[in-house]
Amino acid sequence: MAVRTQSQHGRIRTSSWLLRGASILLVFGLWEWAGTIPVSIAFPRFTDTMSAFVEMLADGTFASAYAETIGPLLVGILLTAVGGLVAGLVMGLSPRAEWLGLPLIIVLQASPSAAIVPLITFLYGIGFAAKVFAVVLLSAPVIVLNSYRGITNTPKSLLEMSDAFLAKRWQRIWKIVLPAGSGLIFAGLRLGLAQGFTGAVLAELLITPTGVGDLITFYRAGADYPYMFAAIFSIILFASVSLTLLQRLEQRIFRPEMRPV
């Protein structure tokens, strides 16, 4: 229970914002300093990177690159979300499916399955489908695993309660099991998206020279390091902003105190 008064709370919040601002200044300052020395000819200054960033933002380079990256990413995540939820549900409810599926998912989740990415070209060429496949490949294990955990982590007391009050099978799943697991399932989608970013970028760097990955490759080949760093900066910024927003949304919808313990 929060026992802090409003003003104390406010003060703590301001000081944490101050620290955060200081921390950003510190990191970018170090970057600028390291670029000025320079630690390497391939390491640009922060200011040069930022001006390249603004330039690419203004002339639409980023817009067209991200249009190519986000499409397959969203399609891949959507496919995996639907498939993963079904797979997790089946594994969570049927002991046979659990026996068959769980070890495979655990192995896949622990393994460097990125190594399969080069093979995708043989099946799906270098287009949209290849990127979707790379996204699915990397994001599926965590999404399936979290759905499964969400489904199986229903507190026993709530299951007994639904039994005692005569819930039918579908009521038990729809009214107890799914709401109880929704927080974990949503968290799985967020983690899956994080993996999906890696999948999309890896596919763009390795097999399909398009999108943000191609920007990075292109500027590296031309030794335009401020532009290369700006492209890398943009994808990390984009990923962390979208993941943070998702996390905020998650905390708002599935507040921890509303989750079963």
Binding site: S157, L158, E160, M161, F165, L166, I176, A180, M258, V261
Partner: peptide
């Protein structure tokens, strides 16, 4: 379980 019996749980078993 049947409709003529209702259960009160030690740990409440409320849906959070």
């Amino acid at each position: 379980p049947g409709p003529e019996r209702a259960f009160v749980f030690q740990e409440f078993a409320l849906m959070p």
